[in-house]
Design a protein around this nucleic acid. Structure first.
Lengths: 249, 249
DNA sequence: AAACATTTATTTGTATGACAATTGAAGCAC
DNA sequence: GTGCTTCAATTGTCATACAAATAAATGTTT
């Protein structure tokens, strides 16, 4: 062994598994442990940290919860540093954002404003770079949304897919991961708005304006349509709120 | 007990602690368990899931790693559902983004483009709403950055703080949490660039342009300055790359 | 009666030892 | 050489025990 990448000195008076997890996480973040590196076995780690195996296991489960490691049983098994994929990062981003929104009584207009601001951020790139496939995906979702027999959940899902295609059109995976998380985290809030036939029609028409603008590579028009869509969505939400207030008051 | 919020049926052939964590996490996400609710004690959970206490503990540590619960020892202690704060969500966002960037060989220009696109997204809001405090924070960082005895790490940190103030000026915490994560995750990449006196001067001057525009509530000017800053940063990075290629080739 | 000290019950934190399940590698027979 | 068996390493799980913290209950003193 040239040099052990993990620091094994911990304070025995403070939470052990948390410190052990932090020590290993540090080694991963600093790059001392790289993707697919194998950690020492649980018994080894227990000896080196001078703790019991269950304590080491608790630490490893913490890391597994963040997808920093994966484990494999058997002779050549063990815990390996995991590559954090876009999909996984995206998934984590969604759960974090969803919980943040649901636990902190975030106002709908705050979340909505953030969402559309972020989305407008990638419109110039999407207008410039979108492929025919992205455009086709947007058109397909518009078609789905215009079917009268689609239920509200399906309509919202299609809405998410439409905006996902718009974001992906920018061809920047970092941007996609950030934005798609924000958009999808808003879906539960959006589901609370019941869509009348009239409002669906309006939304689909705005989606069509966006798709047309992206097709024409007209970034300004797309941004304007998004702004209108935001205003319309906010108006819908205000109506729902007002109706509820009347019912309960 | 009216109705237990947790589903206790798990498949004994698949990873137990993972399933237990998922069952409790579901109860939290769906709102069946709300903030500050106390989970059953570890022994209780062990009985109900029909597993041993160490297995339950592994599951709880998974949830603790995501800050979904906190634990407290003692007579009235136990595991409690944690409120996911903006700070915590922000922290998670940074580690996730940092790991994503470092593990997937993301090109500097891709990350840089995403960062400035996102930042431009909140400029209109920041220009409209920034308080005197936000402006003062930006000016203070500009002053720090113009001190010649500041080292490169300090310069980068101040750069992050400047952009953080810009983002916070929008007065939308959801936006702040998303964007600040993206900006801070880029810092390790930025630290790889050594800043000459000349380049610092240029960056500070661009920061001053941004602050001036925000002060004047001129969103378009701020966006233009950000675009110029992006172009300048990309140029700096290209130079560093070229120099390295020459050294190693 | 009130203030203070003590005990006690509950709960998490940690350790020990054991066994099951999995899995690749080594050894062996053919 | 091929296929089978055995084996050793490793994670997954369990049972039990004890330590440490903590608040409530209890007792004691003033």
């Amino acid at each position: 062994m040239t040099h052990d990448p993990v620091k094994y000195d911990i304070d025995p008076d403070r939470d052990l598994s948390s410190q052990i997890a932090a020590a290993i996480r540090d080694a991963i973040i600093t790059g001392d442990l790289i993707v697919d590196d194998r950690l020492p076995s649980e018994s080894d780690l227990a000896e080196r940290f001078r703790v019991s195996r269950p304590t080491v296991r608790e630490a490893l489960k913490r890391l597994a919860a963040q997808s920093l490691i994966r484990t494999q049983r058997g002779a050549t098994g063990g815990a390996f540093v995991n590559r954090l994929s876009y999909e996984e990062a995206h998934r984590q981003q969604i759960t974090t954002s969803t919980l943040l929104l649901s636990m902190n009584a975030i106002r709908f207009d705050t979340a909505c404003e953030a969402r559309y601001a972020l989305e407008r951020a990638c419109t110039p790139l999407s207008a410039a770079r979108r492929s025919a496939e992205h455009l086709a995906a947007m058109r397909a979702e518009i078609f789905r949304q215009s079917q009268p027999d689609l239920n509200d959940t399906g309509f919202c899902a299609s809405d998410v897919a439409f905006h996902r295609a718009l974001v992906d059109g920018a061809g920047n995976p970092v941007l996609s991961y950030q934005l798609a998380g924000a958009v999808e985290a808003m879906q539960p809030l959006m589901n609370m708005i019941t869509f009348t036939a009239r409002s669906r029609e309006e939304i689909v028409s705005l989606h069509r304006r966006i798709a047309d603008a992206i097709e024409a590579r007209d970034s300004a028009a797309a941004e304007a349509a998004l702004t209108d869509l935001e205003a319309y969505t906010q108006g819908l939400a205000r109506n729902v709120m007002a109706e509820r207030a009347q019912k309960h008051g």
